[in-house]
Design a protein around this nucleic acid. Sequence first.
DNA 1: AAAGTATTGGATTTCCAAGTCCTGAACCCA
DNA 2: TGGGTTCAGGACTTGGAAATCCAATACTTT
Lengths: 149, 149
Amino acid sequence: MILSRASEYAIRAMVYMAEKGGESPTQLKDIAESEGIPFHFLAKTMQVLTRIRLVKSFRGPRGGFTLMKRPDQIYLYEIVNAFDAISQWETTCILGINPCSDEVVCPIHEDWKPIKEEIFKMFQEKTLTDLVGQITAKREKLKELGLTG
Amino acid sequence: MILSRASEYAIRAMVYMAEKGGESPTQLKDIAESEGIPFHFLAKTMQVLTRIRLVKSFRGPRGGFTLMKRPDQIYLYEIVNAFDAISQWETTCILGINPCSDEVVCPIHEDWKPIKEEIFKMFQEKTLTDLVGQITAKREKLKELGLTG
DNA sequence: AAAGTATTGGATTTCCAAGTCCTGAACCCA
DNA sequence: TGGGTTCAGGACTTGGAAATCCAATACTTT
């Protein structure tokens, strides 16, 4: 809806890796099956992440991928920007009026701008660690509800 | 980026019509040329707007389209919803985790939800009149800047 | 009524993201 | 060192949105 499939898959894959956390590489097959992502498509996605050095790849038996930085140092922005030209959002408009800026007569620019900035901020501030935290917090919450509710 | 081209074009077309405001129908050709929208594509788009009775069409010489309601009674939501299933946003996720809700372990749900709701609200509250107002306000502003700055 | 104009709507084409396939290269282990 | 495993990467196919095309219909004007 906002991101390309590649960006979506990349984030989910990296969150999955961060969640596992271990020293040993996480395999493509493992990620694809767990996340329900098409194997071959994810393969290409991981290639990009490897190329921009967000992950490191290992071939052969017991190969796979590891994160190149601590998960609290990996921002969603870095991931997303590898697939979607999110840096161009500055002049992007939901009405397809491009380039759209403060100097252009766009009927919705003033309303869309703050929302756009919020989305931008979210990608720039959130790290993999934050997302993993969300997952565990939610698991707890649902568990409680399941027991007490 | 968020909306389909059809939605984008539909909003722009209707804002254009609202801006003109006159009694006489606005022609497809006029809208398409002024807004830089592919003629034939806009034709299909207008057919949809006609079908859902947001606009009324007139054939033949001096034909075209008129709004079926006062522009301050036409909400963006009505337009957008005709092309994009925006009502499904409730359970839509930027990570492609569907259906995504409060009960699903989605790592970004909590952060995305309020933004999603803001976008939703924007579509539900903004009318064509609001957008036309934005246009004229901006024209004024740019004019001032052009004269004094 | 005839001629011309403008929307209607189905059929078709184009385009690009998404997804698939296959061969090669690097690696590990026996 | 050979066989199996895993990622690399180019080529290809698919699917759906976007755009185009064309004949039909409805209308206006003269």
